[in-house]
Simulated scan of single mutants.
Amino acid sequence: MKTRRIGKTDLQVTEISFGAAALGGLYRACPREQAMDTLDAAWSAGIRYFDVAPWYGLGLAERTVGDFLRAKPEAEYVLSTKVGRLLRPVPTGTVPDYSYVDPLSFDADYDYSYDGIMRSVDFSYARLGLNRIDILYVHDIGGYTHGAAKNAVHLKQFLDSGIKALERLKSSGAIKAFGLGVNEVPVCLDVMRNADIDVILMAGRYTLLDRSAVAELIPLCQQKGTSLVVGGVFNSGILATGPVPGAHFDYMAPTPDVVAKVTAMEDIAKRHGVPLAAPALQFPLRDSFVSSVLIGTARASSLKRNMQLFEPRLPDSIFPEFESQTLVAKPLGSDAVRM
């Protein structure tokens, strides 16, 4: 599989990467054998960039991914994990419901400080059982997760303290790149106006449907040489399933407007003889500032099916036909409403 560079670093990642949230039991249990089969399918498909986080199954996904990669040649893969949450043990049976089924017996506390990030990295090494982490993402900072008031405190803590930990880890060679792993644009702008980062793992905001990143974030990334790793290309599923009953957009039931737009997109794809999921998966890779598209599943069959959407590459001429159906976010400060 072809590779692309992360930011201005020398790190290269495969155009398709694997996200391990589902291996932590997100929404449904993921037995170990099933998880290993899925990772093996990803490796067999040529994927060599794997992303995980302490949050996924409260440590479970890091243990699983680490066990899998430990048997692989070190020089052949790239690994990212995340900081911003510290896990602490809790009595068996008292783990809060975070939508993970059968997680490990831990809870999580937010900590974006220098010490918190350094502790998080040490804990991740132990869970992974590996001595190398290539990329660190600051996980779920922003108003989407914390609300405006709490996020102001977290953001100040990170910019005053936590960013220095990431800079030190990179300058020492412990990591090769760092950035943000988030679901929203505003916090990326806040951080990038105060610090330089290599990469943003952005879920759901630069897709065939949702172009929230276009107005301000992408120009700033191009200006600063910051890469995007694009997750959530199916916008929580609706671009894979189509607007069927029970489909989700942005983790919720879609509005009538979204249903209408996806219906129109599905008709366009059908005219070209392809499922809508194919242009959805391939759309971000048309741009050089996108380093990788992150796909996640807990089933080898789903992984193989998604990889079939990656090739053959669709002609560029198909993509302008979808433009009239996109959701466009206006620049911050605009009085225009989201379309």
Rank of each mutant, 00 (worst) to 15 (best):
M1D: 09
M1V: 12
T3C: 10
R5K: 10
K8M: 04
Q12R: 11
T14F: 05
F18M: 07
G19K: 08
G25I: 05
R28C: 01
E33S: 08
Q34I: 13
L39V: 10
D40T: 04
Y49K: 09
L60H: 06
L60G: 01
E62R: 08
T64Y: 02
F68N: 06
A71I: 10
A71T: 14
E74K: 15
E74Y: 12
A75Y: 13
E76V: 09
V78R: 14
V78H: 15
L87N: 04
L87D: 07
V90T: 03
P91H: 10
P91V: 11
V95M: 13
Y98W: 10
Y98G: 08
V101W: 14
V101Y: 13
V101N: 13
P103E: 04
L104M: 13
S105C: 15
D109W: 10
D111V: 03
D111L: 01
Y112W: 05
S113N: 11
Y125A: 00
L130C: 03
V138G: 07
G143I: 02
Y144E: 09
A148L: 14
A149R: 12
A149K: 10
Q157R: 04
F158A: 02
D160G: 02
A165K: 03
A165S: 06
L166Q: 08
R168V: 09
G173F: 07
I175E: 11
I175L: 08
L180K: 01
G181D: 12
V187I: 15
D190W: 00
D190F: 00
D196L: 06
I197W: 14
G204N: 15
R205T: 01
Y206L: 11
T207P: 14
L209D: 02
L209F: 11
D210G: 02
A215Y: 13
E216W: 06
E216V: 07
L217M: 12
I218F: 05
I218H: 06
P219N: 07
C221M: 11
Q222A: 06
G231I: 05
G237V: 08
G242E: 05
A247F: 00
P254T: 14
P256S: 04
V259Q: 10
K261F: 00
T263V: 05
T263F: 00
I268V: 11
G273V: 05
G273L: 03
G273R: 03
P275F: 01
L276C: 01
A280T: 00
A280W: 00
Q282N: 12
R286S: 13
D287F: 15
F289G: 04
V290L: 11
S292W: 11
I295N: 04
S302Y: 07
L303E: 03
K304G: 04
M307E: 06
P312W: 06
L314I: 05
I318T: 07
F319P: 00
S324T: 14
K330S: 12
G333A: 15
V337A: 11
M339D: 14
